[in-house]
Amino acid sequence: MIEIRNVYKSFGPLEVLKGVNLSVEKGEVVSVIGGSGSGKSTLLTCINGLEPINSGTILVDGVEVHAKTTDLNLLRRKIGIVFQQFNAFPHLTVLENVTLAPRKVLGMSKAAAEEIAVKQLTHVGLADKLSVYPGRLSGGQQQRMAIARALAMSPAYVLFDEVTSALDPQLVGEVLDTLKLLANEGMTMICVTHEMSFARDVSDRVAFFHKGVLAEIAPPDQFFSAPQHPETREFLSNIR
């Protein structure tokens, strides 16, 4: 379970998170929507400790992420994250991209890591790209590789940060299909997204990020048909 309690976070004078609260249960899929520059990416990078926070607490399975004593390298094994920007390791083949962490972080043998990697790459439809370098992949393929790379660590949670935003429109579908597949398999996911149909069809709850807080969190039916906050209504009306 991920518990975010009253989290504040600033970059210098710019206060980005102003008391964020959110709990995500095992097996849940939560979509986060909101204007760009509102702090959605920042929230995700705080969850796995890439960014420090100013106050509040984030607990992952009861472990306080920002406590001095927390071994972040250990904690991060169970929190996968896929970024908006392409982030393949360009000097490694697709297979090596995916086996690196299982080998170096989990200490798996090459054979064992490759077995897992091939399984995950097959899962995201890249079984025929194992020995290709990422530079030769399309944007959609790179994002699917990044998903396989995160999954190869068998994370308990995966955070997706607008993984389709940098893609050409015709490539969005294949990546969203991969996300749906994972959601249906019961993966616990927090998805920052602009894809409203994805948020509606796949999520257990949808959260609206506005002015540094999660202004509204509700199941998709209620969120899209009867939003409580005026800001949510306005945001949704601008999107449609």
Partner: peptide, 15 residues
């Protein structure tokens, strides 16, 4: 080296 590449590496648990 792009920041996001390094963040991706650290996110996988690499020290």
């Amino acid at each position: 080296v792009p920041t996001v590449t390094r963040r991706a590496a650290r996110s996988l648990g690499l020290s």
